[in-house]
Design a protein around this nucleic acid. Structure first.
Length: 589
RNA sequence: GUUCCCGUAGUUCAAUGGAUAGAAUUAUGGUUUCCGGUACCAUCGAUAUGAGUUCGAAUCUCGUCGGGAACACCA
């Protein structure tokens, strides 16, 4: 709506002899109860005009109407100037822009951005929390791509540490050489089973030691199992052949399991980093920091940074014995990633319980004078709650990712079969449809909420296909496809529409014209939710249009072709938008 | 204790500081023609609380109350 802004600037210059910036003009969509499509808020301008909001609105409206051919009328209500734009303008916008194949795809902007997400531990299968992380990361990557960035999807796998040793040890002790093949169990689930078993046996030992008179604290340290796990970690770090080989074997099981879950979820990565490769990094950054005086040593040899001036604490960055802590590795890994790709931005998709960690991490890198530090961003998201309360693996209230996906697909099947609309589908077509619907429901449900907000996942409700859901949008798309097929859209003439627009038609074009702004805003805010809510609005409005205006039975051939084109444009936006959420839409369902 | 995030209809979510706070769901009632009724239309229903800033506050500031999280020589 740039021509309105420019026109208004000119108006203000001529009427009030003042120059103002574009940002000073507040444009918004006209509320549907009023006449017009675009509204200017006049309150901020009254300082310049020295008139009442009403008079200012009238002055501007009159000026715009007289100077801009696209402006056909206006009204001023309580200081809001509502502008009517000609149908010709909207039709032209529709054919020259909205209907074009590249609509909503921005040209390359020459910027490179890394999105790191998923980042699983290799000691247990993925659960609902990871699902939110994966969907969010993947979707944000898609959105950035649509905005013209070069995107690198990265996954930093946490494949070492005491927690990994726990499942290894438990398998060694109790596993009887069980493998995914012998037991027909997905590798990550098998390893997770032993992680749980470790915890169970460990607790038993703690109880025994407590009964023998030890304090809880001592018991936790002295239990033979934890001691053995620690020994194993030392052996791993020393490169012990047997431990390494066990570690490789079990990790391979887990990776096979993860890769099948990723595939099911439809997410992928361009670059994997492994903590087993990176956990020793960061020491040189410590040296650098000491040299620059950003860090300081304590008498025992440990290295710290004082962030109290920034409202944070003193933070340890290297232990007295010279070994790394979590943040040491992260400093090193950040440098490694930058050296590898020289990206302009780097986005970490990590839960909000690590807000403090990332604040510290980024601040340290800035203080070290890393020019790329300003491109770092923590995409923090809220926890996923269940109606029963918080997910706790120990209490068995954790929702497993694979189970969840399977359940969604099964429900999609049941629902679809009940409706009996898949006659004539082959078995493969049916299966692929059920997957599209089940996953669409799940993904849409998790992505329609603003990332930073906590989210309540009700398994029963998520499977509801009514209302603001993925399947509703998928259905709308399928219905449009059906109309287009019947109307032989492909053969229809595709330009020179000149009908007088009905209200819904105009509303539809106006809404469609907002799509690029939404794509931009969702990248800016790192929020797929904006797109989800937008395409839902669009689907709803299309249904209203569909209900009110005949398409195939329109009296006039030109009108019919125009309405088909309008339908086609809607379907395309729905499809593109859903794709940015990682959701496929069927042509038939 | 300190810091951070969040409080909007019964429920789940919206609202670049702008008009009478929108949807979805639930409940109730309705849809001559109809291209796919998983649709459409209508009614009921909310900004936790007290101040402040502003022409104008759900939104910004401060306090109170409520929910969550972080502040480890764990990762």
């Amino acid at each position: 709506m740039n021509f309105i802004i420019q026109g208004t600037l000119k108006a203000i210059k001529e009427l009030y002899n003042t120059d103002i910036s574009e940002e000073a003009i507040a444009l918004q969509e006209t509320r549907k109860e009023f006449e017009g499509q675009i509204t200017i808020v006049t309150f901020p301008l009254t300082r310049i005009s020295k008139k009442t909001p009403e008079q200012t609105g009238n002055d501007l409206g009159e000026y715009l109407k007289n100077t801009l051919p696209e402006v056909t009328g206006f009204n001023v209500i309580k200081g809001f100037l509502n502008i009517s734009v000609s149908d010709n303008f909207w039709l032209h916008l529709f054919t020259s822009s909205i209907l074009q194949p590249t609509y909503g795809q921005f040209p390359k902007n020459g910027q490179k951005v890394m999105v790191e997400y998923s980042s699983p531990n290799t000691n247990k299968p993925l659960h609902l929390g990871h699902v939110r992380n994966n969907l969010l990361g993947y979707s944000v990557a898609q959105i950035l791509d649509a905005n013209g960035y070069d995107v690198i999807k990265a996954n930093l796998v946490n494949d070492r540490g005491i927690h990994i040793c726990k499942s290894m040890l438990a398998w060694q002790l109790f596993g009887n050489n069980e493998t995914p093949e012998t037991n027909n169990l997905k590798g990550d689930h098998l390893v997770g089973k032993y992680y749980v078993l470790f915890d169970k046996e460990y607790k038993k030992q703690i109880e025994e030691l407590k009964e023998a008179g030890q304090t809880e604290e001592d018991a936790k340290k002295n239990a033979p199992l934890i001691r053995k796990a620690q020994e194993m970690l030392l052996l791993w770090e020393a490169g012990d052949a047997e431990v390494i080989s066990l570690w490789k074997k079990m990790n391979a099981w887990v990776y096979a399991g993860f890769s099948s879950t990723y595939k099911k979820l439809g997410v992928d990565f361009d670059k994997f980093y492994y903590e087993s490769d990176t956990y020793l990094l960061g020491k040189d950054i410590i040296d650098e920091g000491l040299e620059k005086g950003v860090f300081f040593s304590k008498p025992d040899g440990s290295v710290w940074i004082d962030l109290t001036a920034d409202g944070l604490d003193e933070k340890l960055v290297l232990r007295a014995d010279g070994t790394s802590v979590y943040i040491t590795q992260d400093l090193g890994t950040a440098q490694l990633k930058y050296d590898d790709f020289k990206m302009d931005q780097s986005i970490y998709v990590v839960g909000n319980e690590q807000d403090y960690h990332f604040k510290v991490l980024f601040l340290i890198l800035e203080k070290l004078g890393k020019v790329w530090a300003k491109g770092l961003y923590h995409l923090s998201y809220g926890m996923v709650d269940l109606p029963s309360g918080k997910m706790k693996s120990r209490e068995g209230t954790v929702v497993d990712a694979d189970d969840l996906v399977d359940e969604m697909i099964a429900t999609a099947r049941t629902r679809t079969e009940e409706l009996g609309k898949v006659e004539g589908f082959s078995d493969e077509e049916k299966q692929s449809l059920y997957e599209m619907i089940g996953l669409g429901a799940l993904k849409y449900f998790l992505l329609k909420v603003e990332p930073k907000k906590r989210l309540l996942f009700d398994p029963n409700e998520s499977i509801d296909f009514q209302g603001n859901t993925g399947p509703f949008i998928q259905y709308t798309h399928a219905r449009i496809c059906s109309v287009l097929a019947k109307g032989l859209y492909e053969n229809a003439k595709k330009s020179d529409y000149a009908p007088a627009l009905t209200n819904v038609e105009r509303d539809l074009i106006v809404l469609q014209s907002k799509y690029p702004e939404i794509i931009e805003a969702s990248a800016q805010d790192h929020s797929p939710a904006l797109i989800a809510n937008y395409i839902f609005e669009l689907a709803k409005l299309y249904n209203k249009f569909y209900h009110e205006e005949p398409i195939l039975k329109a009296d006039d051939l030109q009108i019919k072709e125009f309405r088909l084109a309008l339908s086609k444009a809607t379907a395309t936006i729905l499809k593109k938008g859903m794709k940015l959420l990682g959701i496929e839409v069927p042509d038939k369902m």
